[in-house]
């Protein structure tokens, strides 16, 4: 078994697909091209022709350990994707095959359909404001569809929290645990841990959470409908994690979509999900723009520690120091915004 990525070639991909094609099928692979992006894995697009029928596919493959900015479990991701593909209710490119131990393609790899409509981020970057407002509503629709997935059909390895309170306790504890694991002190992490515990919002039903729900992880199908990709952080949790995370990412990776009208976004999500205004509102989104970020930033900060200690060399790790400062700025600002709004509400009530 290996977790080191080797450059994928048409020949290796063809052999891989031949083993999974119906007996006697003629398989040909061409147009193998690397894709940009991917902080934890290497993405390669290619065309596979099976008995004359051409399909555009993409391979998501573990990056070499020394250069991966984020380390995630490709095997669990495959099992989630496989379950969701079978379920058929979540808009996403179908997951087709996996090299579960890396013995065939040089590293653990998932092969999926390539969405025909391309990148959602590219489309919204060039869009005018009315189109971006509409795009935010599409995001709300996609999020509600993701969160409506049948959790009982997901792989058993995916942890099911005992309760919402236990889940939030655990997430808040992750902030302190992360700071303890890191060699350097991070007062911002300790501040946020204390603040998050003291400012908990109303509970929501737990469900499937994408975990990195953002325009760069969304694509368009051939008919222009949104689909979610890159499920490596998928878990069972509070659905507002995706909404808050998406809003936070807008600050790092414009354009702003949800932030144009957070109230309208929340209203659309409530309409699609059936959740109430006490649960989904701009302030609860702001809270969840902070709380779950620890999961992604744990990988980033631990990667930076390894970099500082000379145990990792990836250039993207150096680059992401700026993303950490941006995260700190966003969390601190969101916490202040929530407290100001809560204070104003108390004054009105008095």
């Amino acid at each position: 078994m290996t977790t080191e990525a080797a450059a994928l070639t048409a020949e290796t991909l063809q052999r891989f697909l031949e083993r999974r094609a119906p007996e006697g099928a003629v398989v040909a692979v061409r147009d193998v091209e690397p894709m940009t992006g991917g902080y934890s894995c290497i993405m390669t697009r290619f065309t596979a022709e099976i008995d004359g029928e051409a399909r555009q596919l993409v391979a998501r493959q573990d990056a070499p350990a020394e250069t991966a900015v984020l380390k995630t479990d490709r095997l669990l991701e495959w099992r989630v994707l496989d379950a969701l593909t079978r379920q058929g209710t979540v808009p996403m490119p179908a997951a087709l095959h996996a090299d579960e131990d890396g013995s065939e393609l040089g590293a653990r790899t998932i092969v999926l359909e390539l969405a025909a409509g391309g990148s959602f981020l590219t489309r919204v970057r060039d869009a005018d404001e009315p189109a971006r407002r509409e795009a935010a509503l599409q995001l709300a629709d996609l999020a509600a569809a993701v969160h409506a997935a049948d959790v009982s059909a997901l792989p058993a390895e995916l942890e099911r929290p005992e309760s919402w309170d236990a889940y939030l306790d655990g997430l808040a504890a992750e902030w302190r645990a992360l700071e303890e694991r890191l060699e350097d002190s991070y007062p911002m992490l300790r501040y946020m841990a204390a603040w998050l515990e003291a400012n908990r919002p109303a509970p929501a039903p737990l469900g499937l959470v994408h975990g990195e729900f953002q325009p760069s992880n969304q694509v368009l199908d051939g008919e222009g409908h949104l689909q979610a990709v890159d499920w490596e952080f998928a878990h069972v949790g509070d659905p507002r994690e995706d909404l808050g995370w998406c809003q936070w990412v807008e600050a790092v990776q414009p354009p702003v979509l949800i932030g144009l009208d957070p109230a309208a976004f929340c209203a659309r999500y409530r309409e699609r999900s059936g959740l109430g205004e006490d649960v989904v509102n701009p302030l609860s989104l702001a809270y969840f723009s902070i709380l779950p970020a620890v999961r992604v930033f744990a990988g980033v900060l631990e990667g930076q520690q390894a970099f500082s200690d000379g145990e990792a060399s990836g250039f993207r790790t150096a680059y992401l120091v700026g993303a950490v400062a941006t995260a700190f700025e966003g969390w601190f600002g969101a916490a202040a915004q929530i407290e100001q709004a809560a204070g104003a509400a108390q004054e009105v009530a008095a």
Binding site: M35, T36, G37, Y39, S119, L121, T122, P187, M188, Y191, S216, V252, Q253, P254, R316, Y319, V321, G322, A323, A325, T326, F328, E329, F332
Partner: peptide, 24 residues
Amino acid sequence: EGILARRLAREVEIRGEFSLAGRE
């Protein structure tokens, strides 16, 4: 909190403008 805010302001000054590059 003011001490933390000033520490953050310097981190932001060091960072400068930041927009995540290389994700499509």
